[in-house]
Write a protein that binds this DNA or RNA. Structure first.
Length: 392
DNA sequence: CTTCCACAGGAAGGTCTGGCGG
DNA sequence: CCGCCAGACCTTCCTGTGGAAG
């Protein structure tokens, strides 16, 4: 039930599979397929579909005695030109071949070695670049897209996968046109489709009758809200199952899904808060202090940018950390908003100006717990805010 | 209808770091 | 080892603005 598991049947992706297959199929005749660019949000099945089609073509190729190779590279891991070339080259390793070291060679030498290797093997090689947007610099893409010019005996095509629709906008135009010969967009799954995906996995992974009827619709609905992320849907189901198992129960119920959803959310917040840079932490703590002060008085006046900045400045003074300008702090507040740990909405108070209304989007106690052992927080935790929103 | 608050948020430019080619 | 450059991170300066109050 892990999302990394790849089933033989990918529900609701027939159109995409056919489309990609029909673009790639010239490879079976030894021709170069067009380069493809694939877009889609996380958990829309991009990687699964491409790997699936790749696998099918590879076996078909073997039947027909054609050389068809697929090289899968995740650019988040392999993010420089050198390592990209090295990785592709080392994919075609065999016992009499030398391995290209992970550092030390000039880049062009790796490049020519790669050409030599691909040429010797011949046939059609498809390089799949997952998360291409993570690749540093477009030189690598440029070189790779022109590799065919130097090949005598082999063909190379490229499949780029990205979840950033705007990725190509700031790409070298030459790379853009050569990579974007074919564009495919993976739409998000809707709730009904997610249900089918979950049902398929349930059949494979769970005993019959171990699941309440309303569990799958709930998982699907929650994941559909999360831009139709199948990965999220599977995670929810798997975690609910694990929770049930840990409790020694043999039936998954709706309430476990809620717990799982909550846990996923908290885990995310923990991860984000822990890795926040010092200044952002201070800002978050300022909001936290202010919110706590507010609750105590049970007066519920909203927090705005100016207030946060005042508290923040006080905190900086007390901890002898250089304070940033309000302009910068405003940006950091937007950043916290984007990370989903606070919500900051622009409102107008008429005569009394325009500002952003800031709220923690996670429970204040939860955040306090996360920060409990934090170095920055420890120096501050004993401060409170008085009626004039000054730090005491 | 006008005023005017308390910022939002764009533009441009400075500083620092880290990677890279020579 | 050095100079160069991109990109992250900030500052300074700025213009723009929703809507309650007058």
């Amino acid at each position: 039930m892990r999302h990394s598991f790849m089933p033989d049947i990918l529900p609701h992706r027939d159109r995409e599979i056919n489309e990609i297959a029909s673009i790639m199929v010239p490879a079976l005749r030894g021709e170069t397929p067009s380069n493809i660019f694939i877009y889609g949000k996380t958990g829309t099945g991009k990687t699964a579909v491409v790997k699936f089609v790749g696998g099918e073509l590879e076996t078909k190729g073997k039947e027909l005695g054609k050389h068809i190779n697929f090289v899968y590279i995740n650019c988040e891991v392999v993010d420089t030109q050198y390592r990209l070339l090295q990785n592709i080259a080392n994919h075609f390793i065999n016992e009499w071949d030398e391995r290209i070291p992970f550092t030390g060679w000039p880049t062009d030498e790796v490049y020519s070695k790669l050409i030599e290797k691909i040429d010797r093997i011949g046939g059609v090689t498809t390089v799949i670049l997952d998360e291409v947007d993570k690749l540093k610099g477009d030189e690598a893409l440029y070189n790779l897209s022109r590799i065919n010019i130097q090949l005598k005996n082999a063909k190379v095509s490229i499949v780029g996968i990205s979840n950033d629709l705007k990725f190509t906008e700031f790409l070298d135009p030459r790379v853009k046109s050569s990579l974007g010969e074919e564009n495919i967009i993976f739409p998000p799954y809707d709730a009904a489709q997610l249900q089918d995906i979950l049902l398929q996995r349930v059949e494979m992974g769970l005993k019959p009758n171990s699941i309440d009827d309303d569990v799958i619709p709930l998982c699907a609905a929650l994941a559909a809200q999360e831009h139709g992320d199948a990965r999220r849907a599977l995670d929810l189901l798997r975690m609910s199952a694990e929770i049930a198992e840990r409790k020694g129960l043999d039936k998954i119920t709706k309430s476990f899904v809620r717990v799982a959803q909550n846990k996923i959310e908290i885990d995310r917040v923990i991860e984000v808060v822990k890795t926040l840079p010092t200044q952002s932490k201070l800002i978050l703590i300022s909001i936290l202090l202010r919110e706590r002060h507010d609750n105590k008085k049970s007066s519920n006046n909203p927090i705005n940018t100016g207030e946060v900045y005042e508290i923040y400045k006080d905190l900086c003074k007390k901890t002898r950390i250089d304070s940033l300008t309000q302009r910068r702090v405003a940006d950091l507040i937007s950043e916290l908003d984007m990370l989903g740990i606070i919500t900051a909405r622009v409102i107008s108070k008429g005569r009394y100006g325009r500002t952003r209304e800031i709220k923690l989007s996670t429970d204040a106690d939860e955040i306090t717990r996360i920060l409990k052992n934090d170095e920055v927080y420890l120096n501050i935790s004993n401060y409170k805010i008085n009626a004039q929103t000054r730090l005491i």
